[in-house]
Each structure stands twice: as C-alpha cells, then as structure tokens.
Write a protein that binds this DNA or RNA. Structure first.
Length: 584
RNA sequence: GGUCCCAUCGUCUAGUCAGGUCAGGACACCAGGUUUUCAUCCUGGGAACAGGGGUUCGAAUCCCCUUGGGAUCACCA
C-alpha cells in the first residue's frame, strides 16, 4: 500500500488557504455556476448538553457551508459507550433546531437530516472502522498493545514527576508475533496503537492560525482502537471525515495538537487532509474556561458559604447529596442541580444553549452574539440575522484570540431584538415561552394585554414573568416586605401614601368601566385632588398595594390585568395591614 | 515541566496580511435629562495598541526578546 508523505500533495490542501474568499468571489461574480463540493460537519459527543462553545462551532460550520453553497453535516460521536446517551443526543437535535441550524446530512430529526453516507452515529459504523484498521495492519502501521491502564498511569505519573511530557514507550512493538498471538488467544485485554512513521518535523495547515510545526517526537504511538473494541476519537474522526467527504473542519483550539495525529492517520490511510479552522475558546468574564462544571461550582460555593448541611426537603436525595459532598469530582445531575438551585434560590450561570432558552433569550440573538465572539463582519456592524451571516461569513475574519462571554451585551442585544418585534410577534413568542417555562402565565385570561404591558420593559421573556409574579398569586397571599421604596411610597412624608389609599379605593370603586383609559383618568383626577397633580404619589402606593413591591407594568395595565375586584381587595388588605402594624 | 497557540479601551472588536487620518464602533461604566415604578429612551464623558529592543523618514501594523494568558501531554471527545 502506498503511504503518501504528509500534506501539500493533494489538490485540496494547495487550494485550502483562502478557499472561501475565492469561492465567494465566484459566487458573487457568477463565475462558478456549479454547486460547490464544500462540506462542513459538526460532530458532538452526546455526553452532555450543547454548550455555547459547541454552538458557535456549529453556527460557523453551518454558515460556511451555506455561504459556499455546500453541505452541512451532523455526526454523533458516540464511541464512548459509558458516557453517551440517547437523551443527550435528542437534546443536541433540539438545541440546534431551536437555533435554526439545520443539517443537510445526518440523523433525521424533524426538518433536518438525510444523506446517503451514513450511518451518522459512530457507534453504528464499527465495520467501517475495522476495514480501515485492517489497511493499517497491512501496511505495518498498527500494532496491538497489552499494557494495562494502571501501568500506563504509573508511567505517566513518573513522566510528570520528572517534568517531561509523557510518551508511550513502544514496549508492545517489541513483542514477538508468537507472544502477541498467544496474548490474543488468551483474550488478554488489549488496544491497537498507531505506529508513527519515521520522518522529519510535522507541519499542519490551519486557515485561521496559519502553519504550525512540531517535532515528530512530540507525537507518540497513540491508541486508535480501545479495549472495548470501539475506535478512539482520532481514528473515527479521520475515517468519517474522509468517507463522508468533509472538506472543511471547524473545531475548538483544544484540538490543534490533535491535528498532527489526524494528518498522520490521513496519510497512512491514503486520505486527503481537509482544511482546518481552529477557533479560540470562550471564557467566563473572570477568565476561567466556560464549562459545564461552572454550575456545580456555583452550587458548591453557595452551600459552603451558607453552611448548608443537607439538601432542602424533596429536591435531592440523601444519597445523591452524600455522593456530591464526598468529592469535588462528583457532580450533581442536571436535574438535581436545577432542583437544588431553585430550592436555595441560587441563580446558576447559563452555559448551555438550553440555559439561554430557559432564561428567555431569542435564538436569533444568541446566534448573533455567539457569532460575534470570534468573528466580525467589519464596518461597525454588530447586529445581524442569519441571512446576513450567510451572505458575509468568511474564514479570514475569524479572530484568533480567545473571547470572554459578556452576558450584559447579550442582554442588550436581546432587548434590542425584542423591541423590534411587532406586538403580535412578541405576544406569540412570549406565549410559546410561557407555555414551557411559566404555564401559569400562559393561562392568564388576558394574555394579550399581559404581553403588550411587558413588551417595552422586558430584556428577556423571563423578565416579563418575573416582574409580574403578583398576577398569578392569590389576593390573600400578597405581602408587603418593608423595603426602602415601600416605606417611601407608603409611610414617609407629611402626608403618607397609605393615608391616601381610602380615597383611592373610593375613587376606583366608583368606576363603572374598568379600562386602561377610565383607570388612568381616575388616577389623574385623584392625583390632582390628593397630591397636587403628582401622579407618582398616587400610582406608586397603588402599585405597591396590589403588587407587594415597587415594580410592576404600567399602573393602568396592571389594574386591568388584575381586575376591579382583586384591585380593590388588595388595596383594602394593604391598608389594613399597615394600619394595624404601623402607627398611621 | 515539555510542546503549541494567543496578546488594541473593563468586555467583544475594527484597523495588522499590502507600515503614513488626534486608533473607530458596540456593550458596560460615569454625569445630566425624559418617564407614574422597574425597564426603556435622549445628550454628554472618561476609557486601549502588555513591556523592551530593532527595521524604517515614519510602527498598533514587519522582526526579535521578555512578560502575561490559554490549550495540550487519556483505552474522553
């Protein structure tokens, strides 16, 4: 079998740098009318949720494919039998779908999927990998290794102590054919390693970083087939990308060093090198890596600081709690973490796409913001939609340096986008969100008014419900914690707000029509007669009385939403409450 | 620790490849103003080329060193 020397011999590699600009020019000048062969892929491992870093990669893959009239492929890398789950896989489909990142090839899910180069689950491709592995055996580029993980672990530890990088020592390469056969016959656990060919320094090409070169000794004989009979990531990714005709590989920079291994494997297998684009990582504002562990860390910190000894009743089992507390390495399950955070009133950091969905962001905005973390269209353009992205996306504008995720800016973008929505769009989107995350609000009788009252003042859908919680509380459960603004509006001043309430009750009671206009007129009239025309002196006590706090939608909307009966009842209760506890 | 990557306002970035406008925008922040609360909205403001050497008439931009940050060194992907 012919083993090509590395890279630069294939057409695609020579062409790779700047491919996009060329293709785009073709497209725009109309010079190239045949559909391009560009194919990108997003290949998540279904071991958790789609997080923002992964989502950004998926968006870039998708945008690049669309920008070049190519295909976008989704492949599920589920070769880790222990950690992969169907539930996680479904979660990825849903999150991608929510962002409206649809794949042309891959597992079928609603409007996405298809293609005839599958299966697109790696766990179903064992025969394919075995066949390719045989090519390596035939070429003398693969060999069995019988060291146990424990032995290897000790070697590694030793290397660390001696302050050098660990490299596999090739001990199993020295084994005689007889010994190997004997081990195999005895069913001795084994892996298959790739034999790195002799040669000079290794150079990889990356169209965002540029060329990177390392000494060949930096790459050891890595494992390509695991003890459980499944291929490792390195082997499966190389085989699948080649067999599925992937031309451009976008991935996080944590894979940069892996690329040398992948290039070596591609050469050994006779595959072309795809074009690589390694993207910088996304960090938290404090500079730490944004990871799924952040939620666990937040909870742990809160529990420790508040010296909480056991979980609040009914949210986490004693057993799960004990395991969690036993070691920092034991993370709470997503469900338990959510329950615990709710019970403790801790806000968990948003990390996953699903977290932002739950927090009430628009998918278009998350997509927009994520794009901006590592790519910029120039010309001071920041807010754009998917169509603009597809029209303008290019590799040469991807930023090399890492970015910190700034929630304040995301929030500002979301506010802008929400405000651009028509009231009908806002209402329908808010309703869909409430159906899932705040069903009590979805059940509101006058939902249209609830939506319009909140449209202008909400940065997220969640804002709408959080500042209107009093709407779904029973009249008799409203309480009035004496915060500063509450005291100011009700108890302070020569004439207190509280003392005006009886007159306000009378005024409102006399209304025949209970509409925004009639209430408004009534309150203005009351303001004139009771407070020299200062509407705030009337409206604010009313707001506090009906809402239990100083924040609510505009007062007219608030009262219409509540209804006349509730409004009056709450005003009376509030007056009684303060009259009995205070000396007014 | 070895190897590799990265470096412009607090943050995301434009400008770097083809050296030459008081380094531009957005978010955040600060000060005013509008508003019945919160949120909006309007006006204004401060704010950066990590440091040091070169090359050049001229350096954010090209080269080198230092410093700082990050990734990686699995039978995880």
């Amino acid at each position: 079998m012919v083993v090509p020397s590395y890279c630069c011999v294939c057409i695609r590699c020579v062409r790779s740098i700047g491919t996009n600009t060329r293709l785009q020019k073709q497209k725009k000048t109309g010079a190239g009318n045949m559909s391009s062969n560009v194919k990108t892929r997003f290949a998540p491992s279904p071991t958790g949720h789609l997080h923002v870093g992964g989502a950004r990669t998926a968006i870039y893959c998708w945008a690049f494919a669309r920008a070049n009239e190519g295909k976008f492929l989704l492949r599920i890398e589920d070769t880790d039998q222990k950690r992969s789950s169907e539930q996680a896989t479904a979660g990825f489909f849903e999150d991608l779908q929510w962002l409206n990142i649809l794949w042309d090839e891959g597992p079928t899910f609603e409007k996405a999927g298809g293609g005839d180069e599958g299966p697109y689950f790696q766990a179903q491709r064992l025969p394919v990998y075995r066949e390719q592995l045989q090519k390596l055996f035939d070429a003398g580029l693969a060999y069995y290794a019988f060291e146990t993980q424990k032995e290897l672990g000790e070697e590694r530890k030793k290397a660390r102590e001696e302050k050098r990088a660990y490299r596999y020592n090739r001990a199993s390469l020295e084994l005689s054919a007889e010994i190997i056969q004997q081990n195999l016959d005895e069913g001795k656990p084994h892996v298959v390693r790739f034999k790195v060919p002799e040669g000079g320094p290794l150079t990889m090409q990356d169209c965002v970083i540029g060329d990177v070169t390392v000494e060949r000794s930096e790459v050891d004989d890595f494992v390509i087939f695991k003890g459980d009979g499944y291929p490792t990531y390195h082997f499966a990714v190389v085989v699948d990308d080649a067999l599925m005709n992937v031309t451009h590989v976008f991935r996080g920079q944590e894979h940069l060093n892996n690329t040398f291994k992948h290039n070596l494997l591609q050469d050994a297998l006779g595959f072309e090198h795809p074009t690589y684009a390694h993207m910088s990582l996304i960090f938290n504002p404090d500079g730490s890596k944004m990871s799924k562990r952040d939620k666990d860390k937040t909870l742990r910190k809160f529990v420790k600081e508040n010296q909480i000894e056991k979980a609040p009743a009914g949210c986490v089992s004693d057993e799960a709690w004990a395991t969690w507390q036993a070691s920092k390495d034991n993370q709470l399950s997503t469900e338990d973490a959510t329950h615990l955070s709710e019970a403790l009133g801790v806000t968990l950091p948003e990390i996953n796409v699903g977290d932002f969905k739950r927090a009430g962001y628009m998918p278009e905005v998350l997509l927009n913001y994520l794009c901006l973390l590592g790519w910029s269209p120039g010309n001071d353009v920041e807010q754009f939609d998917a169509a603009f992205l597809v029209e303008n996306f290019s590799l040469d504008r991807i930023v090399k340096s890492p970015a910190k995720f700034d929630r304040a800016k995301l929030l500002a973008f979301n506010l802008d986008a929400l405000q651009k929505l028509t009231s009908e769009e806002f209402e329908s989107r808010l309703f869909s969100w409430c159906e899932v995350y705040a069903p009590k609000f979805a059940a509101l009788e006058n939902f249209a008014l609830f939506a319009s009252a909140n449209h202008e003042r909400s940065k997220t859908y969640k804002d709408s419900t959080e500042t209107s919680h009093f709407l779904i509380e029973p009249d008799d459960e409203i309480s009035w914690p004496e915060s500063k603004p509450v005291k100011k509006a009700l108890l302070k001043g020569e004439v207190t707000g509280l003392s005006r309430i009886p007159a306000i009750i009378d005024g409102l009671k006399s209304l025949e029509e209970w509409t925004n206009e009639s209430i408004d007129a009534c309150l203005h009239a009351l303001a004139d007669s009771l407070a020299d025309g200062s509407l705030g002196k009337v409206a604010q006590p009313v707001r506090i009385a009906v809402a239990g706090g100083p924040v609510s939608p505009p007062i007219g909307d608030t009262l219409v939403l509540l209804g006349k009966e509730s409004t009056l009842h709450r005003l009376e209760r509030c007056h009684e409450h303060f009259a009995s506890t205070c000396d007014v």
